[in-house]
Nucleic acid binder design. Structure first.
Lengths: 330, 330
DNA sequence: TGCGGTCATGTTGACGTAAACATGGCCGAA
DNA sequence: TTCGGCCATGTTTACGTCAACATGACCGCA
């Protein structure tokens, strides 16, 4: 900056003014400074700016895993929203889903240069005693857990699960079996409990829950359990990947979908319209969740206030070819 | 820091020494300072450190899209490797695959506080004239393009495509059809040219290339083209998603895989072992690519030298159930 | 006992920026 | 013509940290 000032024959303060687009600079001076900046390849030093202003213009994102379709979509929309608002995004990974690594990631966070944090994580881990959310720094949580103390954004898991279950009941199925996500997941718990209450509200039997862990392999195992029972006509898998595993298990023994059994997923991942058969599923608006989270966080940062509360984004049913009325009614 | 010093009754310099783990501090003093830091919740100011040291300990990652399986895997391994080396990772998104947005992302980069950059991108866009790679800052490129001026890491596309093609030839197929990725992609071009030369080396006919754009939808369209021809016994899709689209097109008309036609993919995405049938594919070591890129970048940063060159990571064939000898030979 | 050396700790200054305040020229109204 | 006020620009200072240098206490050996 000093070099630019010398080259343009002005003070550093004038360079600073030009650099920040302040208006009270004579156009001729401005042009001269601009030319010098260009000539010398001047780039403002962000560390110095941050030191001076106390603002990093940087957002931290703590993410449990990049293996889940939803997380990646959310990250993408967060980073685009951040760029548009003039913030950059620092990704803080959690290596393994253990308490220890989550703790470590949070510890790393506090030495980061961030103005705020978005936490996209299974809240079970966050609630554990020895994980301290950073104090004095704005936080938004994207998750389905209970967080009375922070702003929360999430897809409406309960509404989505209801949509899925009702769709199958409306097709005429007597009841719906459920392949749930892992116990450690709040969203899995929400989907399961909404599935259960939807069945109960309709006065139907509630079959035992089959538990998976979001992976296709666990869906496949669930499918093996289900495919031998002839009282299963409809299956609601808590995500598309497990639904895919179920489909595979059914294909192996020639159990037809949707003729013998209807299968519905949850997520609407990019590939699910090309599964065989194309998968009926619940579409989640991860982009809206990410954008909303980012907007809430920036509001927190700039207003310097925290307003706890939960913002829920509705999901929608996408009917494709994996669901149909049960054979008996056709 | 000043507060901590006052509270512990020492100078700020001593606090700095404790904070940086220097050894020449009396244990008793150290403990006192540590206690004060704890008590006051002291966190070193990263901006000031960066300003003082000229090092941000931060890596920028420019990524074209988070929609591709490989990019996400690579990002994940980069961020973990960075964390282990004490660096953080800033994600610089490219909103849309247009020249304009790529240029914008690079411009944004130069105002970032990064010590180095990893570029994971289709190099066609990078080579265009008006995109300037940042000068004076270490860069590693992860891509299959030609970059004589930078260090490059990539999966061995040519070897993978050869593996795929040879696998099908060895099963007894007369030739192999190819569903290629988009023209703008170097890796697509590498896979296609290696497929072609492998066929030529074996003295086989080279069928016309069918071009997709990596998506399942384009694979489906390719599958529709292929499914009506009875001279197609083996298909090599340039990624798993397009292979999935091909499978769907085949299923729709009852064309059996692998009985009537063998299909092989490329990537080994998490779901491909649960496609129907489970997909034979080429496994890429994205984690190795990410780690290696990170290691090369850190070496560049710390040694302050750039050593251009291409580091290639081998791929491997994963045989599942979508490939088999042609009907005629059985 | 004296002197060089080692070690813990303190003091000073600089990194690049921008807010706050200072300066001086010019314009318009009285 | 004079004077208040506005505007462009300059000067000073502080943000938090740490390298470099300074200080002074203590130790051991001659």
């Amino acid at each position: 900056m000093a070099e630019v000032a010398a080259h343009a024959g002005v003070s550093t303060q004038t360079v600073s003014r030009v650099s920040n687009g302040l208006t009270n600079v004579e156009p001729a001076t401005r042009d001269r400074v601009l030319a010098s900046m260009q000539h010398l390849g001047y780039r403002p030093n962000r560390a110095a700016r941050a030191l001076r202003s106390g603002q990093y213009r940087n957002i931290g994102v703590i993410m449990f895993t990049l293996s889940s379709f939803g997380n990646v979509r959310t990250l993408e929309s967060i980073s685009i929203a951040a760029a548009q608002a003039g913030y950059s995004v620092t990704l803080i990974p959690v290596e393994e889903p253990t308490q220890e690594h989550v703790t470590k990631a949070f510890a790393r966070l506090s030495e980061q240069s961030v103005d705020g944090v978005i936490i996209v994580i299974e809240a079970h881990f966050v609630n554990e005693a020895d994980v301290e959310l950073p104090v004095g720094i704005p936080v938004v949580v994207i998750d389905s857990g209970e967080r009375p103390d922070y702003p929360v954004v999430d897809n409406d898991q309960a509404q989505g699960a209801r949509l899925a279950t009702e769709h199958l009941l409306e097709l005429g199925h007597e009841t719906v079996w459920h392949v749930a996500g892992p116990e450690s997941s709040y969203s899995a718990a929400r989907r399961a409990s909404s599935w259960r209450s939807t069945l109960e509200a309709a006065g139907r039997d509630v079959p035992p829950v089959i538990r998976g862990d979001w992976t296709t392999a666990s869906g496949y195992r669930a499918g093996i359990e289900l495919r031998d029972r002839d009282d299963v006509t409809a299956v609601f898998a808590a995500n598309d990947q497990m639904a895919l595993g179920v489909l595979r298990a059914f294909h192996e023994v020639g159990r037809r979908v949707p003729d013998d059994t209807s299968v519905i997923g949850f997520d609407d991942m990019a590939e699910s319209d090309s599964f065989w058969p194309p998968l009926t599923t619940i579409h989640q608006q991860f982009d809206v969740v990410g954008q909303t989270g980012m907007r809430m966080l920036i509001a927190e940062i700039e207003a310097e206030t925290i307003t706890p509360g939960t913002f829920t984004v509705p999901t929608s049913l996408v009917v494709r070819e994996s669901t149909a009325p049960p054979l008996a009614t056709r």
